[in-house]
Design a protein around this nucleic acid. Structure first.
Length: 667
DNA sequence: TTATACTGTCATGTT
DNA sequence: CGAACATGACAGTAT
């Protein structure tokens, strides 16, 4: 059994609620085993096993996006839910994440290695359903799958015997799943192993939980458990003995589709409303059906204010989300917040209690967003424009852009070991995330045609240092060298931020390097300029060696880039032409073969006609005595003057030989 | 996770 | 001889 992990671009992507499939590869039970989960929107096109090796289903296969649209076998992106429906509702309803988790833990995943969505957790998307909760420092992920797993796993085995512990409708699905598990020999393994792991997990985790969970949270949790345990008020009783709303349960709920109403219990009726959004004003409750069908961002749902509606605008979301955090003092230790150790502290107390389950869920979903939110909230308190900060945070190139657009005292020099070019490093670490450790000494110390453009703002540096002093922001994702490169925060920050976003986002490495070294020509000019103009240009301007070197490198690389493009285009053309030639030749061959067949057919027809005519003539011939001529003894022979003679076959044969000999002699 | 396509870059040879 | 060009190979990224 394999779980399809979400992958793809994690950074900055909003978490969308979608369905993730996994395939059951058991050879004796072909067909898909469907699991559900969360995935970044970017993973959706691949949610149907893009790699044939991953499953026997093989319906969807990896195709280049260009070719995918031509392949009817690959379902369009928007049809995933329909595909899931087509696979059968019971499997969808009976999603079991914990079973996999048990295996994962047993395989050594308990140390916090990426689990179901652990891989994405590092990038911030999909971070965790699994839990990273295992590894969440400080026990932030105190709501673990494993917590409900033992019961779930036990239930996995006991499901047929304890149908009451299931969702009213889940009995059928449970039995089917149990059957599947038994066939795979995993159910027992799941159960036993799961309980062992649960014992370990609970032993390790609970003290941490007790340390980290604040009183409100504990109270809320207790209240919830009491309520759920009593079975009253909860329209869906999840996982029997363990009455807490686990992630797995949420998985089930969220991944189920509203039309599969869980035996008459639609998602809208699910007690999640009572427990997740109960604390909020009622209009803000999460509409899971909408979420499922419209990819509503879960964070939006979580952060909804009573009078808010689902918004997709990140800006509005940011500004909206920051409000609750304003009520709190900034965490004294940013690390604590950035790693999501106690995110609930960022929420108001009342919401904290009410959003317990959603907090737990969403904490695991995307820590990155919380990082962003924390940063934003902190920045607000520092008097910075949250939008700018958000942009900086989101901007993958913000490091380079910042260092490029602001004045610098110095930066590290990074020269290529293989050449004299500056800003090397793209080869090893391509484009955007590249450190861009350009040598700016020449830029700072050299002469520039437009020195007025440069404004060094000491107070800006001080402002940033102030920020660094108070909050050690971790810009590593976007600014590995930011600590050594002070930049202007104030005054020009707005302009800078705008410039960063609007103009630098799509700059190539050479363009950014050229900008960094204040080279007064565009990259396009440098590359396309004729060599004479280029040389005269270099001589006309006072340029440092570094600038000249960079310019020549830019020109060389630009030329070579164009050459490579042309070369590839040419190669592609050649290949296409060859393919065309092959097609043409094949068509020609087929044509010739058909012509040949037609000729053979015509020849045969002619031969048959001649044969018939020959016999017809003979049948009409009579000798002197009026008897028919025997065609075995005589033959018809055409003379040169057109007359037809009847000759004995022996003479005709000798006559043919003589003619053939004459013909050969003539030749 | 793996396969594939694309792209930029470098080294090297050719024009 | 140097510049431009062509191309194989490699690495990184996107899908």
């Amino acid at each position: 059994m394999k779980l399809l992990k979400p992958w793809g671009k994690a950074g900055g992507d909003l978490l969308h609620l979608t369905v993730l499939l996994s395939l059951d590869e058991a050879p004796h039970r072909p067909g898909p085993w469907v699991w559900t989960g969360f995935a970044p929107a970017a993973a959706r096109p691949y949610a149907l096993s893009p790699f044939p090796a991953w499953g026997s289903w093989g319906r969807a296969r990896q195709l280049h996006p260009k070719s995918r649209e031509h392949d009817p076998a690959v379902p369009p992106e928007g049809h995933l839910l329909r595909e899931v429906r087509a696979l059968g509702a019971p499997f969808i309803r009976r999603t079991r994440v914990d079973a996999w988790l048990v295996h994962s833990v047993a395989d050594g995943d308990a140390d916090g290695a990426p689990g179901l969505f652990g891989a994405a957790s590092a990038g911030g998307v999909g971070a965790s359903v699994d839990g990273d909760s295992h590894a969440a420092p400080g026990g932030g992920g105190d709501l673990r799958l494993a917590r409900s797993s033992p019961v779930a796993a036990g239930e996995e085995e006991k499901a047929p015997a304890e149908p009451t512990a299931q969702v009213p409708d889940a009995g059928g699905g449970a039995s089917q799943e149990n059957d599947l598990l038994r066939e795979k020999g995993e159910a027992v393994d799941c159960g036993s192993q799961h309980q062992e792991d649960e014992a370990k997990a609970s032993a390790q985790e609970r003290p941490r939980q007790q340390k980290t969970a604040d009183g409100n949270r504990a109270a809320a949790k207790a209240a919830w458990e009491a309520e759920a345990g009593s079975g009253s008020g909860s329209e869906i009783q999840l996982n029997g003995a363990d009455t807490s709303l686990s992630l797995e349960d949420l998985f089930q709920l969220l991944s189920s589709q509203p039309e599969y109403s869980l035996e008459g219990t639609s998602l809208e009726d699910i007690s999640l409303q009572d427990n997740i959004s109960d604390g909020m004003n009622s209009p803000a409750h999460i509409d899971f059906s909408q979420a499922l069908s419209h990819d509503v961002n879960l964070h939006e749902a979580m952060l909804l204010y009573p009078n808010s509606t689902f918004r997709r605008d990140p800006t509005s979301r940011t500004s909206q989300a920051q409000e609750p955090f304003l009520q709190f003092s900034p965490p004294t230790n940013p690390e604590q917040t950035f790693h999501g150790t106690n995110l609930t502290r960022l929420l108001p107390v009342d919401n904290q209690m009410r959003n317990l389950t959603s907090q737990d869920l969403l904490h695991d979903l995307d820590i990155t967003m919380f990082d962003e939110i924390n940063l934003t909230s902190l920045a607000i308190e520092e008097g910075f424009n949250p939008v700018e900060i958000s942009q900086l945070f989101e901007e993958p190139d913000s490091d380079s852009d910042l260092s490029l657009n602001s004045s610098h005292n110095s930066t590290s020099v990074s020269k290529s070991s293989s050449s004299h070019s500056v800003c090397e490093g793209a080869t090893g670490s391509n484009s955007d995330p590249e450190p861009l450790s350009c040598d700016l000494e020449g830029a700072v110390g050299g002469y520039y045609p437009e020195p007025s453009k440069f404004h060094h703002t000491d107070h800006g540096d001080l402002a940033f240092q102030h920020v660094l002093h108070n909050h050690t922001y971790h810009f590593q994702p976007c600014a590995p060298e930011s600590t050594s490169v002070p930049f202007s925060w104030s005054g020009t920050s707005q302009k800078m931020s705008k410039c960063t976003d609007d103009t630098d986002r799509n700059l190539s490495r050479d363009e950014r390097c050229a900008k960094a070294l204040r080279i007064p020509f565009s990259v396009d000019e440098i590359v396309r300029m004729p060599v004479d103009s280029f040389n005269s240009m270099l001589s006309r301007h006072y340029l440092t060696d570094l600038q000249v070197s960079l310019i020549r490198d830019i020109r060389r690389r630009g030329k070579n880039k164009v050459a490579a493009q042309n070369c590839r285009k040419r190669k592609l053309d050649i290949i296409l032409n060859l393919e065309d030639d092959v097609c043409n030749l094949q068509a020609k061959k087929e044509t010739l073969e058909s012509e040949r067949a037609q000729c053979s057919k015509a020849i045969n027809m002619m031969r048959q006609k001649l044969h018939d005519l020959y016999h017809d003539v003979f049948s009409r011939l009579r000798d002197d005595q009026g008897r028919p001529v025997n065609p075995n003894q005589f033959a018809l022979q055409c003379s040169h003057d057109g007359s037809v003679l009847i000759v004995p076959k022996e003479l005709a044969a000798s006559g043919h030989k003589k003619e053939n000999q004459k013909g050969k002699r003539k030749k």
